[in-house]
Design a protein around this nucleic acid. Structure first.
Length: 536
DNA sequence: GTAGGGTTAG
C-alpha cells in the first residue's frame, strides 16, 4: 500500500490552488498548516473534530445566530428536489438542430427507450433494455450501453442503472472511462459519495484517469454531506493525477466549508482563489455570501456583493435572494427594501422567492405594515403568495388590528382573497379573524366566519364563542346567538355555562320567557346548570 | 467526447 499524506482537517487550501512554485512542496504544506491554525485561533473559529464532520445534524459555528439553527435543515435544501426537472432531457429545439443526423437518431432512440422503460413494471425493465439493445436495434456496444446508462442517471432511475451495470460482464462488455464516470455520477446522485469514491478507485486501477467534471461531482457530493476530509482526499487525487480544479470545483468546496461552519476558512479560500488564474465567478460570491448570511453576518455579505459588482460580475436573482434571506433571518428584514431597490436598479427583477423570503421575514419580526406593502407589490407584479404565507399575513394583520383596531378591513380583504383562491384557512387564522372582527364590532361578519369555521370542522375556543354570543346579544340578535349554540351541538361540543347565561339574560331582557325556558332546559339536558334563570 | 456549481418559508 502506498502511504499518502492527507491534508489535515484544517486544510491548507492553498495546496490545491494552482501555484506551481509551491504546490507539492512538503514544507509549504506544514507551514500553511501552522499558519492556518494561527489565523483561526485569532478568529475564534471552532475546529470541528474529524468525527463530527461526517454528520450533518449539528454544526459548531463561530457565531451564534439569533434565530433558528443555522445550518440545521440545510441538507434537504442542498439536494435536488424530487421530481425536479432534469437538465438535458428533453433537448431544446436548437440543440436538436445542431446535432447531425446520427446523433439525433441515437438520442431519440435513447429517449424512446427510456419512455418505454418507464411504462413497464420495475421487474421487467432491465430485461427489456437488454433485449432492445441486443436484438431490436441490432447493435450493442459499450457506447450504446453508456448512452442508456447516462439517460437513466439523468432520469433518476439509479436502481436500474445499478442493475444494468452489475450485469455488464454478462453482455461481455468492458466498462470504459465514460462508464465509470457515469457510475460515479450515479452514486453521487444517490447521496452515496463513499460508493462513488470506490468506483473512482476502481476506475483508476484500470488505468483510466477521471477528468475535472467527474471529480467535481464527487467533491460536491462529499461537501453536501459535510464530509470535508473525504473532499480533501479527492483534491489529493486531483493533485496526483495533475487534474486542475476549476472554479466550479472550488465553489463546491467553498459551499462545503460554509456548510460545516468553517466560514473564515472559506473566506480564505476565496481570497486565495483571487490570487490565481482561476477567476471567481458570481457563484463563488453567492456561495460566500450565503455562508456569511447563514451565520448572521449579512453586512459582510453585502460588502461581497459590492465587490462582485465592482469586479464587473452581474449578481442575479439568487445572489440577491441570499442577501434578503440573510437580513430576514438576522432580524433586520427592513434592510430587504434596500436590496429590492438595488435589484430593480440593476434590472434584476425580484421573483417569487425574493418576495416570499422578505415577506416572511417581515412578518416574523412583527413588521406587519411593511409586509402588507411587500404583499401588494408582489401581487401587483403578478406573483401570488402561497397559502401559508397568506395565512401568516392575515394573522399578522389581525393581531395588529386587535391591538390598534385599524386594519380589520385590509385583513378581511386579504382573507377573502384567500377564500376565493380556494386556499385552506388554518384554524388559528379563523380564530384571529373572528377576534379582530369582534374587536372592531363587526358582529355579523364574526358570526358568519364562526359559522364557516365550525363547518370546516374546526373547534373555536370557548372565549371566541362567548365573545360572539355576547356581542350578538348586546346587538339584540339573539336568534343568531342561539344559532351559535346549535353549531356547537353539531360539532358535539357542549357550550359553557357562560354561553347559556348570556342567552338567557338577553331573552329575559326581551321578555321572551318561553325562549329563555327552552335554553335553560337545553342546558340541563346537557348537564349544565346555568346561573341565570328564566324570568317569570 | 459526452457530464459539474447557487436562493425561501411555517
Amino acid at each position: 500500500m502506498m502511504s499518502m499524506s492527507l491534508p489535515s482537517p484544517c486544510s491548507p487550501l492553498s495546496e490545491f490552488l494552482p501555484s506551481p512554485s509551491l504546490s507539492n512542496h512538503p514544507v509549504f504544506f506544514n507551514n500553511t498548516s501552522k499558519l492556518c491554525c494561527h489565523k483561526f485561533s485569532s478568529l475564534k473559529l471552532v475546529f470541528i473534530p474529524a468525527a463530527s464532520l461526517s454528520t450533518t445534524k449539528s454544526y459548531p459555528t463561530e457565531t451564534t445566530v439569533l434565530h433558528s439553527p443555522i445550518l440545521g435543515n440545510k441538507e434537504q435544501r442542498l439536494y435536488p428536489k424530487e421530481g425536479e426537472e432534469h437538465k438535458g432531457l428533453p433537448m431544446k429545439e436548437e440543440e436538436q438542430e445542431s446535432l447531425d443526423f446520427d446523433e439525433k437518431a441515437s438520442k431519440f432512440q435513447v429517449l424512446d427507450l427510456l419512455n418505454a422503460v418507464k411504462a413497464l413494471p420495475c421487474k421487467e425493465r432491465v430485461d427489456y433494455i437488454v433485449r432492445v439493445l441486443d436484438k431490436e436495434i441490432g447493435f450493442f456496444n459499450i457506447s450504446d450501453f453508456n448512452d442508456v446508462l447516462m439517460a437513466l442517471v439523468t432520469a433518476n432511475e439509479s436502481d436500474l442503472v445499478l442493475k444494468l451495470y452489475s450485469g455488464l460482464s454478462c453482455y461481455s462488455l468492458e466498462p470504459n472511462s465514460w462508464t465509470f464516470s457515469i457510475m460515479v455520477r450515479c452514486h453521487c446522485k444517490k447521496k452515496d459519495p463513499g460508493e462513488a469514491k470506490r468506483v473512482l478507485d476502481q476506475m483508476m486501477q484500470k488505468g483510466f484517469n477521471p477528468n475535472v467534471a467527474t471529480l467535481t461531482i464527487l467533491i460536491n457530493s462529499f461537501c453536501k454531506m459535510g464530509q470535508l476530509q473525504n473532499t480533501f482526499q479527492v483534491f489529493e487525487v486531483m493533485d496526483r493525477i495533475g487534474c486542475k480544479p476549476n472554479i466550479q470545483t472550488y465553489n463546491c468546496l467553498l459551499k462545503g466549508m460554509c456548510y460545516v461552519g468553517r466560514i473564515e476558512e472559506a473566506f480564505e479560500l476565496m481570497e486565495d482563489i483571487k490570487k490565481t488564474t482561476v477567476e471567481p465567478d458570481i457563484y463563488t460570491y453567492t456561495a460566500m455570501m450565503d455562508g456569511f448570511c447563514k451565520v448572521g453576518r449579512s453586512d459582510e455579505a453585502m460588502e461581497l456583493l459590492n465587490e462582485a459588482m465592482e469586479m464587473g460580475l452581474a449578481p442575479n436573482v439568487v445572489t440577491f435572494n441570499t442577501l434578503l434571506d440573510g437580513y430576514a433571518k438576522e432580524g433586520r428584514p427592513l434592510k430587504g427594501f434596500g436590496v429590492l431597490k438595488l435589484m430593480k436598479q440593476r434590472k434584476c427583477m425580484p421573483d417569487y422567492i425574493s418576495y416570499s423570503t422578505l415577506l416572511h421575514g417581515l412578518l416574523l419580526w412583527g413588521k406587519v405594515l411593511a409586509g402588507l406593502r411587500i404583499f401588494n407589490e408582489m401581487e401587483g407584479s403578478g406573483l401570488e403568495a402561497d397559502e401559508r404565507l397568506m395565512n401568516s399575513l392575515v394573522r399578522g394583520l389581525c393581531r395588529k388590528s386587535i391591538k390598534e383596531n385599524d386594519l380589520v378591513e385590509v385583513a378581511y380583504e386579504v382573507f377573502e382573497k384567500m377564500k376565493k383562491r380556494g386556499f385552506v384557512i388554518e384554524q388559528s387564522t379563523y380564530a384571529l379573524v373572528i377576534q379582530a372582527l369582534w374587536v372592531a364590532k363587526k358582529v355579523d361578519d364574526a358570526f358568519i366566519n364562526l359559522h364557516q369555521m365550525v363547518r370546516l370542522g374546526y373547534i373555536p375556543r370557548l372565549i371566541t364563542i362567548n365573545n360572539v354570543i355576547r356581542a350578538l346579544c348586546v346587538g339584540g340578535k339573539v336568534d343568531k346567538a342561539f344559532y351559535v349554540l346549535v353549531l356547537m351541538y353539531e360539532n358535539s361540543k357542549i357550550p359553557s355555562r357562560m354561553s347559556y347565561d348570556l342567552l338567557i339574560h338577553e331573552l329575559n331582557r326581551q321578555e321572551r320567557t318561553l325562549g329563555a325556558c327552552n335554553v335553560y332546559g337545553a342546558a340541563l339536558v346537557r348537564g349544565v346548570v346555568p346561573h341565570k334563570k328564566p324570568r317569570r
